[in-house]
Nucleic acid binder design. Structure first.
Lengths: 276, 276
DNA sequence: ACGACCTTAACGGTGCGTTAAAGTTT
DNA sequence: CAAACTTTAACGCACCGTTAAGGTCG
C-alpha cells in the first residue's frame, strides 16, 4: 500500500500559500454552494459570522475553515433542524455528546412526522374509497368543545315521535329569557341497540334554577367528531355512517352519548371521542 | 328496526325555525371550531366568503350551510392541501371527479414526503453511528458545480511525491496572469487500486492557449459529495471514508475522478456522483 | 351606559429569494 | 471608465396569532 504521508501539507507549502486566505462573500458562496443572501442572513441571525468585516466598506471575509462549519450547518439543516436550534447548537462547544443529543431529537421528530404522514395516507385512502359519483361525500372534522350549561329531559322512548313531544314540552316549560339558540338531542341509546333513550336539551344562561320538568346540568367538555347533514333522514344516516368510518380509520372510540345539534337549515351530528 | 323517518324535519319545524339563521363571526367560529381571525383571513383570500356582509357595519354573516363547506376545507387542509389550491378547488364545481383528482395528488405528495423522511432517518442513523467521542465527525454536503476551465497535467506516478513535482512544474509553466486561486488534483487512480494516476490542475481564465507541458480543458459540470479536512493525511483519510459511507447510505455511486481542492488552510475532497 | 361583540390595520415568525439604490474593487 | 463585485434596506411568500384603536349590539 502506497503511503500518502505528508503529501497534502507538502503540496500546499510548495504552492506558497502562506497567508491564510480570506474569501469575499461571492467566492465563499461559490465554494460552499450556499447563496450570498443566505450567508448574509446567517450572519445577521448570528448563525455564521464572517471571521472579519472590513470596517470601512462593510465587506465580509470568510476563512477556509468556515467551509467546514458551514457544511455542518447545511447537513443538520437538511435533516430538519431549525436555524434557531442550530444557532444555539453552534454557539455551544459542539461536543460529540451535544451532537448526539441533537440528532436523537431530530430523529424523534422525523419519526413522528412519518407516523402522521402514514396516518394521513390512511385517511386519504379512506376518503378516496368513500367517493362515489352519486352521493355527495360527507366531511368529518374534529372539534374541541367546552362544557355547555343546558336544561334537558332524559327519557326512554318507544318511538321517535315521542322525542319531538319532549322537545316541545322542554321549550315551553323554560322561561324564554333563559333560552339560547343552541339546542339538540343527546342519544343515549339508538335504534341499533334495540331500544331508544334520548335527552333533548337547550343551552341556558347560567343562573337558571332546576325546574320540575327538566334538569339543569352541564354537557361535559369533549372532543368531537362532527359531520353536517341536510334535514332529511337519509342524509343524516349517511353522516352517521361517515363518522363511524372516520373514527374507525383513525382508531377512535365513542366516549359518551352522540349529540345532534339543530342548526336552522342543517343538522350537526357529533360523536364524543376518546382515542384507542 | 325503528324508523326515524321524518324525525329531523319535524323537530326543526316544531321548533319554529323558519327563518334561515345567519351567524355572526363569533358564533360561527364557535360552531365550526375555526377562529374568527382565520375566518376573516379566508374571507380576505376568497376561500370562504360570508353569505352576507352588512354594508353599514361591515359585520360578516355566515349560514349554517357554510359549516359543511368549511368542514371540507378543514379536512382537505389537514391533509396538506395549500390554501391557494383549496381556493381553486372550492371555486370549481367540486364534483366527485375533481375531488378524486385532488386527493390523488395529495396522496402522491404525502407518499413522497414519507420517502424523503425515511431517507432522512437513514441519514440520521448513519450520522449517529459515525459519532465517536474521540474523533471529530466529518460533515458531507452535496453541491452542484458548473464546468471549470483548467490547465492540467495527467500522469501515472509511482509515488505521491511525483505529484508534488508535477504541480510545481504546472504552476511555473503557465503565465501568472492566467492563473486563478482555484487549484487541486484529479485522482484517476488512487492507492487502493494498486497504481496511481493523478492530474494536477489550476483554474485558468478563458482564452489561454494550450501549452506544450499542460493541457487546457474543462472539468465537467457535476454533482459532488464534498467534505473538508485539515492539511494532514489522517484527516484526509477520515474525510474519504466519511464520503464513501455517505454515498453508500444514500445510494450514490462515483461518476468520475475524485477531486482534491487546495484551500489555504484546508483541503476539500470532492467525489463526483451519479445516483443508483 | 357598559360589556361583549364586531371592524380594519399592522406587526411577528420561518428562511430566505428578489429587486433596488448606492458604494468598492479590478 | 466600465464591469463585476459588494453593501443595506425593503418587500414577498404561507398562514394565520396577536395586539391596538375604534365602531356596534343588547
Amino acid at each position: 500500500m502506497l503511503s500518502r504521508r505528508g503529501l497534502v501539507a507538502s503540496c500546499c507549502l510548495n504552492w506558497g500559500l502562506t497567508v491564510a486566505a480570506q474569501y469575499r462573500i461571492g467566492e465563499f458562496s461559490e465554494l460552499s454552494g450556499v447563496s450570498a443572501k443566505t450567508l448574509r442572513f446567517y450572519d445577521e441571525i448570528g448563525l455564521l459570522r464572517p471571521t472579519a468585516v472590513d470596517p470601512r466598506t462593510g465587506y465580509r471575509h470568510y476563512s477556509a475553515h468556515q467551509l467546514d462549519t458551514l457544511a455542518s450547518i447545511v447537513e443538520l439543516k437538511s435533516l430538519g433542524v431549525s436555524l434557531s436550534d442550530l444557532r444555539s447548537f453552534m454557539a455551544k462547544a459542539r461536543s460529540s455528546n451535544e451532537r448526539r443529543r441533537l440528532l436523537e431529537e431530530v430523529r424523534r421528530r422525523v419519526e413522528e412526522s412519518i407516523q402522521t404522514a402514514q396516518q394521513s395516507l390512511k385517511c386519504i385512502d379512506d376518503a378516496l374509497d368513500e367517493i362515489s359519483p352519486s352521493k355527495r361525500s360527507v366531511c368529518v372534522v374534529l372539534k374541541r368543545r367546552a362544557a355547555i350549561p343546558v336544561a334537558s329531559v332524559r327519557a326512554k322512548v318507544d318511538h321517535y315521535t315521542e322525542v319531538v313531544r319532549l322537545e316541545q314540552q322542554l321549550l315551553e316549560t323554560i322561561p324564554a329569557s333563559s333560552i339560547d339558540k343552541l339546542r339538540g338531542v343527546l342519544w343515549h341509546r339508538c335504534a341499533d341497540s334495540g331500544s331508544l333513550e334520548a335527552e333533548p336539551f337547550v343551552r341556558v344562561k347560567h343562573g337558571l334554577g332546576p325546574g320540575s320538568f327538566y334538569d339543569v346540568k352541564s354537557l361535559p367538555a369533549v372532543t368531537l367528531a362532527c359531520a353536517y347533514s341536510d334535514l332529511d333522514d337519509d342524509a343524516a344516516e349517511a353522516a352517521y355512517d361517515a363518522i363511524r368510518r372516520w373514527m374507525n380509520v383513525r382508531g377512535y372510540v365513542l366516549a359518551g352519548p352522540k349529540r345532534e345539534i339543530y342548526l336552522d337549515s342543517a343538522l350537526e351530528i357529533q360523536f364524543p371521542l376518546k382515542s384507542a
